[in-house]
Amino acid sequence: MAAACPCGSGASFAGCCRPYLRGEADAPTAEALMRSRYTAFVRRDAAYLASTWHASTRPLDVAEGLDEAEWRGLEILGTTDGLEGDDAGTVTFVAHHATGAISMGQHRETSRFVRVDGRWQYVDGDLS
């Protein structure tokens, strides 16, 4: 049986986020990019995170802090625009994580995305 994708889509990793992380395809929607970025956090793939982070807001060291949390699940709460014909969109999500043997937490955010040269890019987000 194929391994499930960490993004929680229900699809296999090979049929979901892997082509994006490998650069074989571009995420067609803001939500697909959000899911693939979550998967990149799970896999500690700083190069993919950097390549999908808008240049105006990308930190100098994307890898900083990647090892601090063990990501345990993603819930997409809603999206606004961000479809194949759009130039911008938002995705509201909750990412569950552990930061030690017993410390559980959540990261809640409404992320903003824009399409640059036909590719979705993460701009920034509002924490809630």
Rank of each mutant, 00 (worst) to 15 (best):
L33S: 02
D26N: 13
P19A: 03
A2V: 08
E24I: 00
S36T: 09
L83H: 13
W53D: 03
A40L: 04
G10Q: 07
A30W: 01
A55W: 07
Y38A: 10
T80V: 11
A11C: 09
P28M: 10
A27L: 04
A32G: 13
L21Y: 03
S51H: 02
R58E: 11
L49M: 08
A14V: 14
T39A: 13
T79L: 02
A2R: 15
A25S: 15
S56A: 15
G8T: 15
G82S: 02
G8W: 14
D67P: 03
C5S: 05
G23M: 01
A63L: 05
D26L: 14
S51Q: 12
G23E: 05
W71L: 00
L74E: 11
G10V: 06
T39Y: 02
T79E: 02
S12A: 14
G65S: 08
E64Q: 11
L49E: 01
G8K: 12
A25N: 08
S51K: 06
C5D: 06
F41S: 01
E64P: 02
C16T: 03
T52W: 09
A11D: 15
A32W: 09
D26Y: 03
A40M: 05
G82F: 02
A63R: 09
A4D: 11
G15H: 14
T52I: 09
L60C: 02
C17A: 10
E64G: 10
A25C: 08
T79Q: 02
S36D: 07
C17D: 09
F13W: 12
G65Y: 07
G78Y: 12
E70H: 11
G23C: 01
V42F: 10
A25R: 15
Y20W: 09
G65I: 08
E24D: 14
W53C: 05
S56G: 11
L60Y: 00
E24N: 01
D61I: 12
L33C: 07
A11H: 12
R22N: 12
A40E: 00
M34D: 11
C16V: 06
R58D: 13
E75C: 10
V62K: 04
A25I: 08
G8Y: 12
Y38W: 13
A40R: 04
Y38C: 14
A55T: 09
A30S: 02
R44Y: 02
L21E: 07
P59Q: 12
P19M: 04
G65A: 05
G73D: 05
A30M: 04
V42L: 12
R44W: 02
S51L: 03
C17P: 00
T57K: 05
A40H: 02
